[in-house]
């Protein structure tokens, strides 16, 4: 039974009476770790960035929570294209209902948030995918927002940080979703040709058409521990090869060993590592960028003041 939940862990609300709780504690204050089954106080877990204090298992995290975690000043984040909403080009069955359901669930109109902000004093363009919205799948809106994010970074000569969490291209928009793979991969390349940095962060899961387009193409690819990373779905592989596949075939750790990931970074160190990369690749720090977009030649030769 446990395997069923492996790829897609969820918060489990522990009902009063089944766990060592006081009678007067309301439901939802406690959650159980999927991996080690430890019962955790939700407030502590949140303070701990969704990392189990016992086994370091990384709980799912919403895009909004990730924004708060990564940005120096989450209030100063300038969200872009928040008004883009998905259509239903193929009149696909149940698509409208699913979008409606996940809008209510996540407060987002589609599976990504894009915008500009500051990480460790470095202005960046940031894109964060939301797995809670149709499995983070990429349709027209995700593709378009990502392409615009890279274009905006190109215009402002800024680095891009993308946090992926997606099952792949969105089936409900059919071939149009497939074409977003080209749109995003080309946006990466255009940005890259201008000599600009792209950091790709793989959260659980990063698979199929998202791994097969922009997510695998960072100058630096970072994964969260235990994230599922791969192209084909596990069941599809098992059906094709006619046997059980190794359970760790598509874990970030295996994909790292296979040479497709630069770093595996726990969530509580992610901001620091991204900041370090932004420094190491000479991305302009805040003071220089504050006066507007720096000249193409601009480089931070000196140590940024904000070095921690």
């Amino acid at each position: 039974m446990r395997n069923i939940f492996r790829g897609r862990p969820k918060y489990v609300t522990v009902k009063a009476g089944t766990a060592p709780l006081k009678k007067d504690v309301p439901d939802g204050w406690w959650v159980q770790c999927q991996q080690c089954k430890t019962v955790l106080y939700r407030k502590d877990l949140e303070r701990n960035l969704g990392i189990c204090e016992k086994c370091r298992y990384h709980f799912p995290m919403s895009a909004r929570e990730r924004l708060r975690m990564l940005l120096d000043d989450p209030e100063a984040f300038v969200e872009t294209d928040a008004d883009l909403v998905p259509g239903n080009p193929l009149q696909f069955p149940e698509y409208e209902a699913k979008k409606e359901r996940d809008l209510k669930k996540t407060g987002l109109r589609d599976a990504i948030i894009t915008g500009s902000g500051v990480i460790e004093q470095h202005p960046v363009v940031l894109a964060i995918m939301e797995f809670g919205f149709l499995g983070g799948s990429m349709g027209s809106v995700v593709g378009e927002k990502l392409a615009r994010a890279f274009d905006m970074a190109l215009d402002g000569r800024l680095p891009v940080v993308v946090v992926s969490s997606s099952g792949g291209a969105r089936m409900q928009e059919g071939i149009i979703s497939l074409m977003q793979m080209q749109k995003t991969a080309a946006a990466v390349e255009r940005h890259s040709r201008a000599g600009l940095l792209y950091i790709s962060v793989l959260a659980n899961p990063t698979t199929a058409g998202v791994w097969g387009s922009f997510a695998s193409q960072g100058d630096v690819v970072i994964a969260e521990p235990g994230a599922t990373v791969g192209f084909a779905g596990r069941q599809v592989i098992e059906a094709a090869v006619g046997k059980r596949v190794p359970p760790d075939l598509q874990t970030a750790e295996t994909v790292f060993q296979n040479g497709f990931i630069d770093l595996i970074v726990p969530r509580d160190q992610l901001k620091g590592v991204i900041g370090q990369l932004l420094r190491l690749y000479g991305c302009p720090a805040r003071k220089e960028a504050a006066a507007g977009a720096p000249e193409p030649e601009a480089k931070t030769d000196k140590e940024p003041e904000a070095d921690k």
Partner: peptide
């Protein structure tokens, strides 16, 4: 191909 070696050798990449 959705195969084990294909994944190991970076099909998506």
């Amino acid at each position: 191909y959705p195969g084990i070696e294909a994944e190991q050798r970076g099909q998506g990449v």
